[in-house]
Design a protein around this nucleic acid. Sequence first.
RNA 1: GCCCGGGUAACUCAGCCUGGAUUCAGAGUGCCACCCCCCUAAGGUGGAAGUCGCAGGUUCAAAUCCUGCCUCGGGCGCCA
Length: 567
Amino acid sequence: MKEAVFETIKKALGKLNVKLEDEKISSFIEIPKDYSKGDFAFTCFFLSGIMKMPPHEIAIQIRKAIGNAPLEFSDIETAGAYINFFLNRKSLAYQIIKKIKKEGDNFGKNNGGKKEKTMIEFPSPNTNKPLHLGHLRNMSLGESLSRISEFNGEKVVRANLNNDKGIHICKSILAYKKWGKGKKPSEKLKSDHLVGNFYVLYSKKEKENPGIEKEVHDLLGKWEKGDKETVNLWKKMNKWAFQGFNETYKNFGITHDKEYFESKIYKKGKEIILDGVKKGIFEKLEDGSIKFDLKKWGLGEKYLLRADGTSLYITQDLYLAYLKQKEFKLTKSYYVVGSEQEYHFRVLFKILEKLGIPLKGLKHLSYGMVNLPEGKMKSREGTVVDADNLIEEMENLAKREISKREKISSKELEKRSHTIALAAIKYFLLKIDIKKDMLFNTKESISLEGNTGPYLLYSYARANSILKKSKKEVSSVMPEELEEKETELILKTGEFPEIIKKSYNSLDPSLIANYSYELAKIFNEFYHSLDVIGSEKEEFRLGLVDSFKQVLKNSLYLLGIDILERM
RNA sequence: GCCCGGGUAACUCAGCCUGGAUUCAGAGUGCCACCCCCCUAAGGUGGAAGUCGCAGGUUCAAAUCCUGCCUCGGGCGCCA
């Protein structure tokens, strides 16, 4: 439709003997923020220099030169320095509603990425402590980005790298060994929480007696040598950690297609480094260590292999990047990892580039930290918001709210409160710009009112309720006149495909989250100002409600949020 | 010291990429007032609340672009 505006303007300018490049004209055609100002607008400020007239005068001149509005438009009017183009909204509305109806769950999909095979890695936890709020942000983002990519036609492999070895793991193992007394997970103590408790205990003991740090190193040494007792204990505790994680993943609606384990790859990658030395990219020092000079790119120097020939974190990451590619023939590979690791990934990608390993589409999907009013979360000190506890707390809150309103079976109560709790958490974590740090204030964040996940579910349930109660059939016949709220709602649903593309291109789910809220808000305004059931336009408005419901559903799907037919 | 990223109402955040509009720089929470005759009040309506960190610059036009500064966070290991 923009072309029609363009042609109209170009013609009019021709009549006024104003010569402009097509691109320039096009760049001054914009979409007004407010529907009441039309569907397109042409700004005349920039012409004042050329035409030697005040901008509003120019607008009037151009409007005159346009003459009668072409068929596509219902109206063209000037407002100050703007020429506002109103599309024939009845036919536009009709087209949007028809399209949503026809495409349903596929509305907004496109296959722009159909040639892509993408691996998205998240949340890659350490196995020495349970998942916390930071992981919830990570998982919400990972799942949402996976769905957004799929919605745009990509094939997505959801992967997880389990950081199951290293000094931090040995800390919880040592604490268990010394003070665990053979304790086992129980109904009351989830297995990964048990492991986490010993990690906290270790930190406490270390403060009292810094000497035990040596014992941890000894333990790591034993593990690396394959000491039977140590390895068995490590296996046992890792199993507990994984069991607990799996419960949390399931509870949070996360699945993976591929699991990687650091313990299985940590020795690998040496060949890649040595190959780089042969090619003269890396430098071998006298003591045998290998390093890479990245000062050219402002990244300093980085060691790639220890003097004793053992691997470093970056070494195994190089290997894993290579392995992923080999196994899955990827065209893209994303890492959902916190912003604190930006430097690491810049170095990693630069090295891969220099090695000439044909890895395309590597990207660190960096997200900001989740902080508490008291400051940073620290697992060591136990000052974290635990994932399982938070979910449970939210469920209880939702249960209380539901019980105030309605008596339902306990099974239904469980289901609804769970869905509401997850919606609240996921929406809260996704609505904020991916790259920004965020503050989690327990009391304020755990709200079910206002700009929240439950608000969206509630709007959806209301729409559903109308459709259920009405005895009439949805009709595609357009009414004579459209009310303002009707127009707003239709145009907003029509924006959806564009939002999807934007969100896909910028890899940021917050655009969809904020769109969902705006959409639901308009629906609630519509709901309050106009009757559906019993109105003369009942059939038409049912169609409108149905479109809204569909678009909100698609939108929430992309955020990884399940819907409820009743609330 | 160097490299990233923030600083918009009391609080939490949109808007910034792609600079514009009339009375207003928007939401939510909180505060004040109002609305259940009617499709779920987890809702809607109105009000109070802002030197868009500071100072320059570019432009007909700057929250938005550029420079400097202030300030907060993160990062700069033969740790992971």
